[in-house]
Amino acid sequence: MSKDVKLRTLEKDDLEFLHKLNNDPEVMDYWFEEPYMSMEKLKDEFEKSQDSTRERQFILTYKGEKLGFVGLYGIDQRHRYAEFAIMIDTAHQGNGYASTATQLAMDYAFSRLNLHKLYLVVDKVNEKAIHIYEKVGFQAEGELHEHYFVNGEYHDAVLMSIFEKDYWKLPK
Results as ranks from 00 to 15, higher is better:
residue 87 M to Q: 12
residue 56 R to H: 13
residue 33 E to N: 07
residue 64 G to E: 15
residue 54 R to C: 03
residue 86 I to M: 02
residue 41 K to A: 11
residue 52 S to D: 15
residue 73 Y to W: 06
residue 113 L to F: 00
residue 92 H to Q: 12
residue 90 T to Y: 04
residue 106 M to K: 03
residue 38 S to M: 01
residue 35 P to F: 00
residue 93 Q to S: 02
residue 53 T to L: 14
residue 82 A to V: 07
residue 72 L to D: 11
residue 87 M to V: 05
residue 79 H to N: 15
residue 51 D to W: 08
residue 76 D to F: 01
residue 89 D to M: 06
residue 77 Q to V: 12
residue 53 T to H: 12
residue 46 F to G: 12
residue 74 G to F: 15
residue 67 L to E: 08
residue 33 E to H: 09
residue 57 Q to A: 08
residue 66 K to D: 15
residue 60 L to A: 11
residue 113 L to D: 01
residue 59 I to N: 12
residue 58 F to C: 00
residue 86 I to T: 08
residue 92 H to S: 14
residue 36 Y to I: 01
residue 104 L to E: 01
residue 86 I to N: 08
residue 71 G to L: 08
residue 59 I to S: 10
residue 61 T to L: 07
residue 36 Y to P: 00
residue 89 D to T: 10
residue 36 Y to A: 05
residue 39 M to S: 13
residue 63 K to W: 02
residue 56 R to W: 06
residue 96 G to W: 05
residue 89 D to L: 07
residue 105 A to L: 00
residue 69 F to E: 08
residue 76 D to K: 14
residue 79 H to W: 10
residue 75 I to V: 14
residue 59 I to K: 13
residue 85 A to V: 00
residue 32 F to T: 10
residue 112 R to Y: 01
residue 32 F to P: 02
residue 37 M to R: 12
residue 62 Y to P: 00
residue 43 K to D: 14
residue 77 Q to K: 15
residue 72 L to Q: 10
residue 46 F to Y: 15
residue 68 G to L: 02
residue 47 E to Q: 08
residue 92 H to K: 13
residue 85 A to W: 00
residue 33 E to K: 07
residue 55 E to A: 09
